[in-house]
């Protein structure tokens, strides 16, 4: 809870690059990974995007891989289920548990590996976006689309207040911890409930204050912000094109190929 990914994005040098270019790269990676039928494409994407995030984005490698491992629990469980039960055909190996025969078929194993690879590829694209682009930069992109204004307004204010409340929550939690508020299950349950209540009431009052303060500054339902112009450099275009060609080539040559 102490670190959210936006913290890395704010200090990343890639922050000052063209937003549309970054979004194109990310969207391309995500779509190519999801629609490929061999695990190699998402793996290539994962390697490229991780390299870009760590090398160009200057995100420390240790925390980066720890964040990348965040979905591991959910994904591993689901992948194991898929490996055991998906598809028909020959079983590669099988054993009996409580009278049920459990077996891993080649179709199931392939599917599980594909899903694992896709998740890895997709998450690395997503992390590239979230570790190099602070949300502030994305708002101007959102404004250029046809998403309703009220939706964007609320997301902008929400963004601001997430940080305010996170700080309050961390302070309260710290104070509770030093008073042994989390010493066992019962007390920690009570502490979490008190923390959440306090947060709710405080956010309520904050919302009322925010309305008054914005109203007194002539808020009419539109927050305007500066959209900086950042031209795309030649080197970036070359790198992006190289990356696209590589992924498309792998996509073409590994159609239908699987590990087993």
């Amino acid at each position: 809870m102490t670190h959210i990914l936006d913290d890395y994005a704010v200090s990343s040098p890639l922050r000052y690059r063209n937003n549309w270019l970054k979004l194109t790269v990310v969207a391309f990676g995500i779509l190519a990974g999801v629609s490929s039928n061999s695990p190699f494409v998402p793996l290539v994407i994962a390697v490229c995007m991780s390299f870009a995030t760590v090398y160009f984005g200057k995100v420390p490698a240790g925390p980066y891989f720890r964040i990348l491992a965040a979905p591991a629990g959910f994904v591993m469980v689901s992948a194991v289920i898929i490996a055991f039960f998906f598809g028909e055909g020959e079983k590669l190996f099988s054993f009996e548990v409580l009278g049920f025969t459990l077996g891993v078929g080649s179709a199931g194993l392939n599917m599980a590996l594909l899903v694992l690879a896709r998740t890895l590829g997709g998450m690395s694209c997503l992390l590239f976006l979230s570790l190099t682009t602070p949300m502030i930069e994305l708002f101007s992109v959102l404004k250029a689309t046809r998403i309703p204004d009220s939706f964007i307004e609320i997301s902008m204010m929400m963004y601001r207040y997430i940080f305010v409340f996170l700080e309050v929550a961390m302070g309260v939690k710290y104070a509770q911890t030093v008073r042994l508020g989390y010493k066992d299950f019962r007390t920690s349950f009570r502490s979490v409930a008190m923390l959440a209540t306090n947060l709710f009431i405080r956010s309520w009052e904050q919302g009322e204050k925010l309305y008054v303060s914005m109203n007194s500054r002539c808020y009419d339902g539109k927050l305007t912000m500066l959209d900086e112009k950042r031209p795309v450099r030649l080197l970036e275009i070359v790198l992006t094109c190289g990356y696209f060609t590589l992924v498309l080539a792998v996509f073409y040559f590994t159609r239908g190929i699987s590990f087993i």
């Binding site: 009220s150 997301s155 601001r160 207040y161 349950f189 956010s203 309520w204 919302g207 925010l210």
Partner: peptide, 20 residues
């Protein structure tokens, strides 16, 4: 509008709290 925004932020912070 501001009330909805702080409510959304509250949901976010709630959901990032770890339950014992």
């Amino acid at each position: 509008v501001p009330l909805l925004a702080v409510a959304g932020a509250f949901i976010f912070v709630m959901s990032s709290l770890k339950l014992p």
